[in-house]
């Protein structure tokens, strides 16, 4: 019977990924509580890596497109307005270098930053808390969301109130995209903006806080007709909530793509196929 040391075994598994954490001479003590300690042999690092890259790319793109280049890169063409700028704030008071998107983005940004799904995603990918299930995290102490700064996550329901306002606003933009210079029509941009409004509605209305608000906070669904109705709404929101991760990612991707599409049409990099002809 072959006997091996516990820590030698851990080293063996890490080496499968080509990662050497410590030298042999120090492995005994330092590995015991070292970040990444695990016996998992699957690719546990893949999902947090993918999520981390995805979120990073979106944050970079939206910051450049909406906040930095806001007034220097056309965000409106024909009946299409980028969802980053919906509703559009026209004012001569603010200087040109201030993007009108900053009057909009606080709502979706605070909503997504405090969203229960995104918290899970970035706690794993960026805070490594933990990077994956049963994988040792790097922090020596932990108090979660019980202290400053993460106690701020409790503002999520207020962020949700703000995000709810933008659901009809985005639908208004989507419906407006079917009407140009007195003529009803349809274009690829109209379809993209409508899909954006649909996916964002599914994400917002499937929010855990909204689920609590519509009926989750009740203990009885049968006391009155009002409670019976709330149970039905709660059931519908629960079915959306069960796929909250999918709604979160699909709505994130489409809102970025919608913005990019409008920019590309406005810059004449691509042609929008529609029933109105050219916008230029």
């Amino acid at each position: 019977m072959k006997v091996i040391n516990k820590n030698q075994f851990i080293i063996t598994y890490f080496n499968l990924y080509g990662v050497k954490l410590v030298t042999q001479s120090t492995q005994e003590e330092s590995l015991l509580n070292r970040y990444g300690k695990t016996l998992r042999t699957d690719r546990w690092w893949f999902e947090p890596l993918l999520v981390g890259i995805g979120l990073f790319l979106f944050i970079m793109y939206s910051t450049v497109s909406a906040a930095i280049l806001g007034n220097y890169w056309s965000y409106e063409i024909g009946p299409y307005l980028s969802p980053f700028f919906e509703p559009l704030f026209y004012t001569d008071v603010i200087p040109k270098w201030v993007s009108p998107a900053i009057f909009i983005l606080w709502a979706p940004l605070s909503f997504r930053m405090t969203c229960y799904y995104y918290r899970r995603a970035y706690y794993r990918s960026y805070f490594l808390s933990p990077p994956a299930c049963a994988v040792r995290e790097p922090a020596n102490s932990y108090a979660g969301e019980s202290t400053v700064p993460l106690i701020v996550q409790n503002i999520h329901r207020f962020a949700m109130y703000g995000a709810l306002i933008f659901v009809p606003i985005l639908w208004n933009g989507a419906i407006r995209s079917f009407y140009w210079e007195g003529e009803i029509g349809i274009g690829v941009g109209s379809l993209i903006l409508t899909l954006n409004a649909f996916l964002l509605s599914g994400y917002t209305l499937g929010c855990h806080s909204f689920r609590h608000l519509v009926g989750g906070g009740l203990n009885s669904f049968t006391g009155s007709k009002y409670q019976v109705i709330r149970k039905k709404v709660w059931d519908m929101v629960s079915s959306l909530n069960a796929h909250h991760k999918k709604w979160a990612w699909s709505s994130l991707i489409i809102v970025g793509f919608s913005d990019l599409y409008v920019h590309m049409v406005a810059a004449e990099w691509i042609v929008d196929f529609n029933t109105w002809g050219s916008f230029f």
């Binding site: 229960y116 918290r119 899970r120 706690y123 794993r124 808390s129 933990p130 299930c133 049963a134 932990y142 108090a143 979660g144 969301e145 019980s146 993460l150 106690i151």
Partner: peptide, 12 residues
Amino acid sequence: DYCNITKCCTDV
């Protein structure tokens, strides 16, 4: 409030 909803409990 210690829970940061990383969902490992649900996963296992």
